[in-house]
Design a protein around this nucleic acid. Structure first.
Lengths: 190, 190
DNA sequence: TCTATTTCTTAACTAAAGTCAATGCGACGA
DNA sequence: TCGTCGCATTGACTTTAGTTAAGAAATAGA
């Protein structure tokens, strides 16, 4: 199970036996059922997740309906916006399907970081990378029409189209399910 | 001139005489004219900026027209997406008006960080803050209609409406100038 | 297995943004 | 001072998304 995290981290640094042990001690594995809520609006968050298997969706509630912000799948880190703060969350985290995660929390994290400073550096580097990716996908999003966004999604994350309900895909693209149906038909007839 | 940076940093940490000196040594002041390009698409970037006075716009070129991603004004940090990497930039940075900035670069930065580890920590904290803000504004953007985005902009950054040409505001809201005109009229008639 | 519920699609209509073209306004330089 | 150019606005028309409502398909639960 934990192999996947080590595999992920080994892309960035050399994993010593000691480090392996430290990571094993500072995280634990947890399993959630489809539909389970990991984080509610209004509550604080002191857990972050690394997805071993499954899919997590983050969304806001506005005018009674859900606005999907992001889908996280295998080998991705889910760090709530308010992680390690006392700020109540504005968004929800929900499991799209049965999901196995490795859970981290600030206390265990800072302990491990003190023992392994290279992990702190690593964490910063990965953080910067995520930030750069986010900025890029924001730019992509802003520059595209709903149809382009859908085509882009099909290209980059074809698995999502299969495993996530269409109305959640639609909300992710900021359109109504009816519009997504029409867009798909439009593309078919080309 | 440099007072503004110290003032900004003093919100986060105590500024000693030594630190003040180090900051003075690791940055320099530069002035750009209206319309000057600080970063071109395709080139690498080894400079970041802190705006003392003025306004900088980042934009992409798509299908021949400019897609504005962000406006940066007084007391804001402008860190190109590809800063301190060998990746060629996908976006441009342009001065909306005459702009005075404090310039930083990776070499000077890492020197100062070694001498003042608290500055490295600070830089990380500010980085995380910027990241959280970005995520929030992305969520806000995704959840809003063009009209809501315009009203939001008027509320949060009324100065931009005054100092930036309307067609750039429109591109920032991802609409055409004609649509922005209509939105303004619609709001007037309410 | 059968039912009930959710999800997806379709249709008709409304609302809003895109497109194209024309006009008006103001800044800037000759 | 005048003329030019870029910018903002307006109008007519097209395209696309939202809304409402209905029905078909898929899914989950009893």
């Amino acid at each position: 199970m934990k192999d996947k995290i080590l595999q992920y981290l080994s892309k960035y640094t050399v994993i010593t036996k000691e480090l392996e042990k430290a990571i094993a001690e500072s995280t634990f594995i947890q399993c959630f059922k489809k539909g389970e809520i990991l984080l509610k609006k209004g509550s604080t968050s002191n857990e972050c997740y690394f997805i071993i298997k499954g899919c997590i969706r983050s969304y806001y509630l506005k005018d009674g309906d859900e606005k999907t912000i992001e889908f996280y799948t295998e080998d991705e880190a889910v760090i709530p916006l308010n992680y390690d703060t006392i700020i109540p969350s504005g968004h929800y985290l929900e499991c799209v399907e049965e999901t196995i995660v490795s859970v981290g929390n600030p206390e265990l994290e800072s302990e491990t970081f003190q023992k392994f400073p290279e992990l702190a550096t690593l964490s910063r580097i990965i953080g910067e990378k995520i930030m750069a990716q986010q900025q890029e996908s924001f730019a992509d999003y802003k520059m595209s029409t709903p149809e382009e966004r859908y085509l882009n999604l099909v290209k980059r994350r074809p698995d999502l189209i299969q495993r996530v309900p269409q109305h959640q895909i639609a909300s992710y693209l900021s359109i109504k399910p009816e519009s997504l149906s029409r867009i798909k038909r439009r593309i078919m007839n080309k």
